[in-house]
Design a protein around this nucleic acid. Structure first.
Lengths: 267, 267
DNA sequence: GCAAAAGTGTTTCAACTACACCCATGT
DNA sequence: ACATGGGTGTAGTTGAAACACTTTTGC
């Protein structure tokens, strides 16, 4: 979205007006949970889970971490890592805790909230709200993951449980948008990298070619990356040794509110 | 966001690893609510409310709809409209229903999800999760609102209840970003408008000057607006009559994934 | 005619893409 | 030497901001 950015959850919406019926059930008390218990339905809360779309560039492809469900519903289908929100737990800590089961949390270089889904029918077993997060793992790591868990190319997902396919898509779009106007690249790349490596990560995440030459200049101009002064020895087939770069910041920054990185004209 | 876009919920995050302790409580069953009830805490769900940041340009200022709380907690403070999520209710319909108490839902030209907050302490009365929405009302309407409710300039909020001030800020930032790379303008403007009126709405929402001359060309080039062919009679002080424009689409579209509308260099 | 407001033409500028060319290394 | 891959210089393109100038109205 963003640019970019961000998601685009537009809703056409019904034309019906509930104005008449609703005003009966205590207007001002609506936002007070422990106060007047006006409506009968608000006694019990709703089950709430947190999920994560964990993305990493693996072998030049944007990949998602999924686990295979052993039991019904959706036995044999693949699902996003996550689980129930604890009773007095905040959302961010919760998804970090849940992810600890699948991947070492220290491997996550970035984590941000994506969206919350509340369709009553999204979970066959009963009403469960889900807040989804986007998590990123740098390309040089290979986290230890459980046996029921594996990485899948984000562009060709296996049979997905619940509404998780749509959530993965939200994550991909969010990442793509933010690569254009923020420095999220730092979360995909290792601490140091050559420009051709970096352009590979961008290509995988954006889905189109990214010229290393221009990427270098764009990111340098924006102050996102800097030259370490060191080089990487050239390969067995020769070639000039590549300079090593690093991101200047390892936290999310908006570097170009009105952004760039458009697909090439020809090619 | 492109654009802007979008929100930027970055988290630095703790270095602690919970890996050891968590694996005890049944790994694969985490996302199955009605299946094996492994953990003791997941029996009761959490209270969940929906809130809306309803924005409108009123008298040249970006304004937000708030209601004044009558009772504790935060008696006399101002809060966002909203209320408890119904037992079998989806999030979007719920916020529409809740808003029906404050403003006719038919007046809303745009509604999108903003973010979900889950800090355990965000509500003094007990644990309440909140999913916030951004709603827009076109500048020509003056919806009928209840006595305890009124519009406030979004830049100078009154004493706000709970974490609602932060949520209003998220809404403002989201709107600003999306004005740059989508056609959300349609949701702020009346069905037909002159370019100087429209630039006034953009100025109010963006917080900086927007030249009607250039806005016209940008939005025409992008195909967002079109000339109706009709004019508005000039005022008593004369002047050339202004042409009437309309947005071509009245649903959200991304018109420029890598967007524009930067603040003026000088001025 | 003159002031006021809207609209047009033109210049300038920033930021990027494309591409030709130069540089450093291995064999 | 020369193939290979990285880096630099530079031209071309796009989209928008700035601003002078023209058009159309009321008085």
């Amino acid at each position: 979205m963003s640019g970019q950015d961000g998601g685009c959850d537009m809703e056409g919406g019904p034309d019906v007006s509930w104005t008449a019926e609703v005003t009966t059930s205590g207007v001002s008390a609506a936002a007070v949970p422990s106060g007047s218990s006006g409506s009968s339905s608000s006694l019990a809360g709703q089950a709430h889970e947190v999920l994560a779309v964990v993305l990493q560039i693996r072998a030049g492809r944007l990949s998602v971490l999924l686990w295979e469900r052993a039991r019904a519903p959706f036995a044999g289908f693949w699902a996003l890592p996550g689980g129930r929100l604890g009773w007095q737990e905040d959302l961010d800590p919760s998804i970090r805790r849940q992810l600890a089961q699948k991947v070492d949390v220290r491997d996550l270089t970035h984590l941000e909230q994506l969206e919350t889904r509340g369709e009553p029918e999204r979970h066959p077993g009963g009403r469960v709200l889900a807040t989804a997060y986007l998590g990123l793992v740098p390309a040089d790591l290979d986290p230890v993951i459980p046996a029921d868990t594996s990485w899948h190319p984000a562009t060709q997902l296996p049979q997905m449980a619940f509404d998780h396919a749509g959530i993965v898509d939200s994550g991909r779009r969010r990442l793509r948008a933010k690569l254009s106007y923020t420095n999220v690249g730092f979360a995909l790349a290792p601490p140091e990298f050559t420009m051709s490596e970096l352009s590979g990560y961008y290509r995988a995440a954006l889905g189109h070619d990214v010229a290393a030459t221009n990427l270098r200049r764009v990111l340098l101009r924006r102050g996102q990356i800097e030259d370490t002064g060191r080089c990487v020895p050239s390969g067995r087939s020769g070639g000039r040794p590549a300079a090593l770069f690093r991101f200047r910041q390892r936290e999310l920054e908006v570097t170009d509110a009105f952004a760039v990185l458009r697909p090439p004209h020809r090619g």
